[in-house]
Design a protein around this nucleic acid. Structure first.
Lengths: 242, 242
DNA sequence: TAATCTACCAAACACTTGTTAGGGAAGGCC
DNA sequence: GGCCTTCCCTAACAAGTGTTTGGTAGATTA
């Protein structure tokens, strides 16, 4: 009678794999509606529940996921935080997992929008690194919950076909950074005596773990933090002995 | 008839708070045995189940916790990995949570043993930092699962009185690092133009996130990784422009 | 040989989990 | 007015959860 939800807006960033429902989730539940699985009912348009409300609820869910962890978060807790009952969430979303997916895919889409803008500027390697790091801190500022969730859960999710885009994004991420670092070494702006993969992980991790402690409005703007981080990453914390 | 378990060996590192059972866990379950909660039955000695077997099982549990996450890990999965049934675990441990506690407390105890050895040597600030970082990578090498668990779960656990020692350890950790950094600034071996708290988080995070990708026997020894990390942290990845 | 321990199994328990089905109040539109 | 849509509630479900209880095979001790 009333169930127009589904994730019509999960654009599936970086790669538009758009896998069919696949259906795996918790247990073989309700063998009712035995058909209607074969090919997905032609994507029933893309409307019904207002996208604004979805966005609100997703923001709430993201906060709870980030704070308690995905598995420790029950749909009832999310509903509580939203001031409604558990079942009501299923008017907007078709599963707890699809909320997670939409949160992460939205974040990654915007992240890569920012990265692509940087990369298209074709800056030098050092300037590219600076711009990428700064952009990363801006994304942490904007999507701090999503980043925290990504950090904690992505490792367990990559196994599932539904989250294929996480793997894709990660690979593209790695390639982007490695290329930048290698270019820097070739142009003699980055040290060549370092293991480049180690340096990659070093830069990557130092940036993103900041999401675990960063709180917006805490005296430091993202750009300010980025500047300090870059100063440490590029020049180190030791005093120059010249 | 047979239930000699309990966590007699959880020494509760850094601070021996030794809180009583507290009993909170999953729901108010089983109103049977309504008494026997009031004051904990006087710590029934400290023997029975062989400590070796406990250690084996804890190592297995730690691996599963680290890989799947604590909440996503069911006791049945642990039992599976150990080649036994879920209920049998309760001969050795009195709860899933107490396994987690023993894993983390064991790790932290050994970690602080190592740190204390370093700190007692009264090295200069730079040498202290180098030694602490190196020691950290050795601990990651030895307790990689425990470190991974600590990274992922400690944030949710600090709220519980049972895990008070996590907070204690964290505070001591912070004080140790901040002092070392401040000393370094005072002695002009570390840059003084940096936000010291930011530098602290920078160093702390860069070290410990390595546990998420580090795999022992992967070509790099802990000391080797430490050396490279230290090189980046201290001198940066950029080429010196003198 | 009998008594005792150790370490596990088998089966259940009380409860929580994600999810569904049907219904209904509020408001806009004809 | 009647109708439809939007958004939520009530109440339940089936499976999965941590944990307990009682039992027992096999080694160890007496």
């Amino acid at each position: 009678m009333s169930k127009p939800n589904q994730n019509s807006t999960s654009t599936g960033p970086t790669t538009s794999t758009q896998k069919a429902p696949a259906k795996k989730s918790p247990a073989k539940q309700a063998p009712a509606t035995k058909a209607a699985v074969k090919q997905a009912p032609a994507k029933k348009a893309a409307v019904s529940p207002s996208p604004e409300r979805r966005g609100e609820l997703l923001a709430i869910a993201a906060d709870v996921f980030a704070e308690q962890g995905y598995n420790a978060t029950t749909v009832r807790k999310i509903a509580d935080a939203a001031g409604m009952l558990a079942g009501s969430l299923y008017y907007h979303f078709d599963s707890k997992e699809s909320m997670l997916e939409e949160i992460l895919s939205t974040f990654l889409t915007e992240l890569w929008d920012g990265y692509d803008t940087v990369l298209q500027s074709r800056l030098g390697p050092r300037e590219t690194l600076e711009a990428l790091v700064t952009e990363s801190f801006r994304e942490i500022d904007r999507h701090r919950s999503a980043v925290a969730i990504y950090q904690k859960e992505s490792r367990h999710l990559v196994a599932q076909a539904r989250f294929q885009y996480l793997t894709d994004s990660q690979q593209r991420f790695e390639k982007t950074w490695l290329t930048t670092l290698e270019r820097g070494v070739a142009e003699h702006v980055f040290r060549e005596d370092l293991d480049i993969r180690l340096a990659y992980r070093f830069v990557r991790d130092t940036v993103w773990v900041a999401a675990s402690w960063y709180r917006p409005g805490g005296g430091h703007s993202p750009e300010e933090i980025a500047r300090q981080y870059l100063s440490m990453v590029l020049d180190g914390i030791a005093v120059r002995t010249t």
